[in-house]
Each structure stands twice: as structure tokens, then as C-alpha cells.
């Protein structure tokens, strides 16, 4: 028993030692609350924010909600109790973050949202978000040009994200808008809901390829879902390189390591890239500026860019997925 208690005390002391880095001569502490770190994009973003904070001699107090909005609310309240100098939140969704912003407003602590804007309310915050609509529109416009190089009518499909996520909706709308001018030649035959879930994506695209075997163009709303599409195409013998007969024109969004590998190997036509370097720097700068009492626009848009085989060598250094080791 005595040994058990000794172990508990030792574990608590070790935890304290490994976690608390706020001592010393830092310029302050920023609470960073991520919804999840279960995809490469979030890990790259977390690392980017950590690097930007370190650059400015700011400590990072991090918390991950593991997809639970209530837990995230509790974590933000804990940050406020700790009297952090600023809060950065990657919210689970647009609605549940509003009470968190209100709490931060009441405590007079600046709060910046990363990647997802809040629902309309009287709560005050700054959001750094990719221009999901425009990046998707540009990406799909490129894909349409590739698909239309072949004669005749073409069929297209989209894998849609979680419709509770405003970014997923913007990407879906960007897809639809890009194909509008080609309505006579490109027909959208399948809109597959995935809720950002790879299993649902695989089942959905498999069914779509069964119902429409001649789909020529597929857009995935996140590169996270590319492995599902690859698996479904392979099982139908249609996972082919750009330029091969029966190649399915394939595009994505995010710019992760899988997309980079597929681009370099010639299986992916294009992907819309969120500029993680821009996003993380703008987020940390916004929280620093707000703390200093400066005025910051309510939304800071990341224009992003489209990467395809034509500009791969030129823009790959700006693609975050190119720097992730697989």
C-alpha cells in the first residue's frame, strides 16, 4: 500500500514536471484548444501554432477535446481560470463555440478561432479560415478542364464532408459553382455524404461506382478521404495514372501527405491547399494584436492555392503535406 501511494505521488510529480512549462521568462501564455488531432492536417496546424508561439516567446497551454464540444467548453473555462493571455480554439462546430467566445469576452481574454468560423451572434472573436469556396471552385475548375479534354459527356461525383461543418458546405458549394458553366457536358451523378468518415466514404463511393460505372471525375472534400476513393477505384480496376485511358480525374482539398505522394506518382490531378504556414502565423499574430489592443478584422481569409502536376515543383514547398514524412 505504501508503495502504491508512493507511485501515485511520483506519477503526479512527473506529470507536473512534463506538463507545466509556464515558468520562466516568457512573454505570456496562450491556451490552444483543438477539437481533435486525429488527422495530419490538425497535427501540422498544432505544430505550426506551437512554432509561431515559440518564435514570439509565448508559452502554449494545450488541450484536445477529442471531438466533444462539452469537453472543449470545460477546457476553455479552465484556460480562463488560469488567466491565460489569449485563447486559440479549433471549434468542433460553428454553434457550440459561441458560449465559449462569450465566456472569453466576459473575462476580457482575446479569442481567435482557427479554421472554423462561429455562427452569427453578438459574441466577439477573430477567425482565421481558408477561403474554402474559392479554393474548391478553382480546384474543380482545373479538374473540369482536364475531364473535358476527352470528347463527349462526362459524369462527376463529390464526397461531401459533415454538413454541420460550415467548411464542408463551402466546399460543396464551390464544387457545384465550378461545374455550373459545364452543365451541358458534365453531369453530377452522385453527391456522397461522408461526415468526414473514411468507412462511410468507401461505402458511398463504392455504391456510386456500382450505379455509375463510367464516372469520370471525383472530388473529395478532404484529402483525408482519398484512401477510400483509391480503394474503391482499385477494386474496379480504374486506379490509373493521369494520361492513361479510363483514368478518373481526381481532386481533393487540404494538401496532405497522401495527396502530395499521389500527385508526385501521377494518380492525383489536383488538390486545393490550405496554407497552414499562413493560417498559423495569422492566428498567433491576431491573438498577439488583440492582446495589445489593436483592431483586427473579424475574419482573416487564407487564399490558399491549387496544386497540380503543372505547378508541382514550383509550389510544393508551400504545401504542408510535402513536409510531412510518411
Amino acid at each position: 500500500m505504501r508503495n502504491n501511494i508512493a507511485w501515485i505521488v511520483l506519477a503526479a510529480v512527473m506529470l507536473a514536471g512534463c506538463g507545466d512549462k509556464t515558468a520562466g521568462t516568457s512573454a505570456g501564455t496562450i491556451g490552444v484548444a483543438f477539437e481533435t488531432l486525429q488527422t495530419e492536417y490538425w497535427v501540422a496546424s498544432r505544430d505550426g501554432i506551437a512554432a509561431e508561439l515559440k518564435k514570439r516567446n509565448l508559452n502554449m497551454l494545450e488541450a484536445i477535446a477529442d471531438g466533444d464540444a462539452n469537453r472543449q467548453f470545460e477546457q476553455v473555462r479552465n484556460f480562463i481560470t488560469r488567466r491565460v493571455d489569449g485563447i486559440i480554439v479549433v471549434p468542433k462546430d460553428a454553434q457550440t463555440v459561441v458560449p465559449m467566445i462569450r465566456e472569453a469576452n466576459r473575462a476580457g481574454i482575446p479569442i481567435v478561432l482557427f479554421n472554423r468560423p462561429p455562427a452569427k451572434s453578438d459574441a466577439r472573436s477573430v477567425t482565421v479560415v481558408a477561403d474554402n469556396f474559392s479554393i474548391t471552385k478553382d480546384t474543380v475548375a482545373y479538374l473540369a478542364d482536364q475531364a473535358l479534354k476527352a470528347p463527349g459527356k462526362r459524369q462527376a461525383a463529390i464526397l461531401i464532408g459533415d454538413l454541420g461543418d460550415i467548411n464542408a458546405i463551402a466546399r460543396r458549394d464551390g464544387f457545384e459553382e465550378a461545374l455550373k458553366p459545364h452543365a451541358g457536358r458534365i453531369e453530377i451523378v452522385s453527391r456522397i455524404p461522408t461526415e468526414w468518415n473514411q468507412e462511410k466514404a468507401l461505402a458511398g463511393i463504392t455504391n456510386a461506382l456500382q450505379a455509375h460505372p463510367s464516372i469520370d471525375l471525383i472530388f473529395v472534400s478532404s484529402d483525408l478521404l482519398l484512401p477510400s476513393v483509391v480503394s474503391a477505384l482499385k477494386s474496379r480496376g480504374r486506379y490509373l495514372k493521369v494520361g492513361e485511358p479510363s483514368h478518373v480525374v481526381l481532386g481533393g482539398f487540404d494538401g496532405d501527405a497522401t495527396a502530395y505522394r499521389m500527385l508526385t506518382e501521377g494518380y492525383l490531378d489536383a488538390t486545393g491547399v490550405q496554407d497552414v504556414g499562413f493560417d498559423t502565423a495569422a492566428t498567433v499574430q491576431a491573438v498577439v494584436d488583440l492582446k495589445a489592443g489593436k483592431t483586427v478584422p473579424e475574419t482573416l481569409l487564407d487564399p490558399g492555392f491549387v496544386i497540380h502536376r503543372g505547378n508541382l515543383a514550383q509550389v510544393a514547398p508551400r504545401m504542408w503535406g510535402a513536409g510531412v514524412r510518411k
Binding site: 512534463c18 506538463g19 507545466d20 512549462k21 488531432l37 484536445i64 469537453r71 470545460e74 477546457q75 479552465n78
Partner: peptide, 15 residues
């Protein structure tokens, strides 16, 4: 436990 790990800022990979 949640509260103390959160205030400690323990890394997600350890929490």
C-alpha cells in the same frame, strides 16, 4: 483528473 491534466497542458499524445 481532466482538470489537472488540462491545466498542466499535458500533450495530447500523453493525456
Amino acid at each position: 483528473l481532466d482538470n489537472s491534466l488540462n491545466l498542466l497542458g499535458v500533450s495530447f499524445f500523453l493525456v
